[in-house]
Design a protein around this nucleic acid. Sequence first.
DNA 1: CCTGGATCTGGATAAAAATACAGCTATCGC
DNA 2: GCGATAGCTGTATTTTTATCCAGATCCAGG
Lengths: 232, 232
Amino acid sequence: MIDQLTDRQRQILDLIQRHIRVTGVPPTRAEIARILGFRSVNAAEDHLRALARHGVIELTRGRSRGIRLIADGAIGGDANADTRPGAAGGFGAGADLPVIGRVAAGSPILAAEHVEDRHRISPDLFRPRADYLLRVRGSSMRDVGILDGDLLAVHASAEAQNGQIVVARLADEVTVKRLRRHARWEHRVQLLAENPEFPPIVVDLREQELVIEGIAVGVLRLGLAAPLQVDD
Amino acid sequence: MIDQLTDRQRQILDLIQRHIRVTGVPPTRAEIARILGFRSVNAAEDHLRALARHGVIELTRGRSRGIRLIADGAIGGDANADTRPGAAGGFGAGADLPVIGRVAAGSPILAAEHVEDRHRISPDLFRPRADYLLRVRGSSMRDVGILDGDLLAVHASAEAQNGQIVVARLADEVTVKRLRRHARWEHRVQLLAENPEFPPIVVDLREQELVIEGIAVGVLRLGLAAPLQVDD
DNA sequence: CCTGGATCTGGATAAAAATACAGCTATCGC
DNA sequence: GCGATAGCTGTATTTTTATCCAGATCCAGG
């Protein structure tokens, strides 16, 4: 691809790359012409057309500075040291996330026997990064649009802030609730459902163990068009 | 630095980052205004000045799209990140999906100016395959867990079955509703909201043009943990 | 020799874009 | 209440920018 460019074209391409790096925006035709000493902006236009024909850049008609580099190989840049948990297959096209179904009492959420599926979704779609998808049971979070059967994207973390929706383990039951803390409550937190049919759960941390398994970072609902519910 | 921005300013900053990721160039004042629904480009200008004052962006006087992000760390988007063109052709295996925002009257949904972002999600995660993600406006489908700001995965198709949730264009407005047809109704269909506050819409096909743009195949909700809503 | 591509000049024009100016309405601290 | 600030509307003007047209050179290949 790049190797069938002429020297001059390669030079233009290089100029575009540098211009983006230095100024933050791609160059205009006039800027290319000025930098290279062309007396006509059309020279730059011709070169851009040629580069686009060769597929190394993409031009957006009518848009000022509408030049985009087509990354052909490695893109130098951000180093996101990513601790992917069980990255089974795909590399390069984005990792996949395990779908966690019914969680048995006493065993860790990410135990292999809880993984009922995998979906190809980039963990980095969510912020903070999602570590797994938890299949939601019940309608206690109905009023914030988390329905039975939905997949809840969860960031595994024992830390959660007041008001966040968390995946918590209470008396060996895994539930999704909104966490409510208060400065005045010494040893107490609340787990609130988002559905008036479910009363708040008050937890006295001296009496019961509450483990925050993670915080909810997103929702994914599949099968909207083809209702193949696995109700039981 | 970033933490002393107002919500609105943070939103503008986020928009700039996404615009660079999606189009390869920073947005113009007019583009910012259009995306956020401002009726005056000056609103965008004011916001940019404010962001520059706070040191999170740098403006180059006189240069079109002369906005540069001051890398302070965090908040995703590296300027010239990798973004495949993902052009209007074949979708590969691990392609990304365009996020469609505000759809202007009269123009096709998949027009380039409606694309506000791209997300790396496999279209084949959904069945039938998703062709784009539509950002939902309003709460008319609240009771089936489709909330304001959600991303609706849509399969582009003019065919829809009775009872399916569709993306429809009625009087040049794009809406998401449940489609209700009946054998007895000759020239009539209903578009039902899933929220008692919204009355059913009865469409007489001899009087009004109803275009089915696609059927809903899934829901994606991001930012559950960090509420940076794009409401306006 | 002739064609076609690469590389330019020079000129013209419509659209896009930045930027200034004059307001208006909230909200917030004092 | 008062003034500052955020967050807008609306209008106008000047630059910038993309894009088209009509050429001119040079060079490689058939």
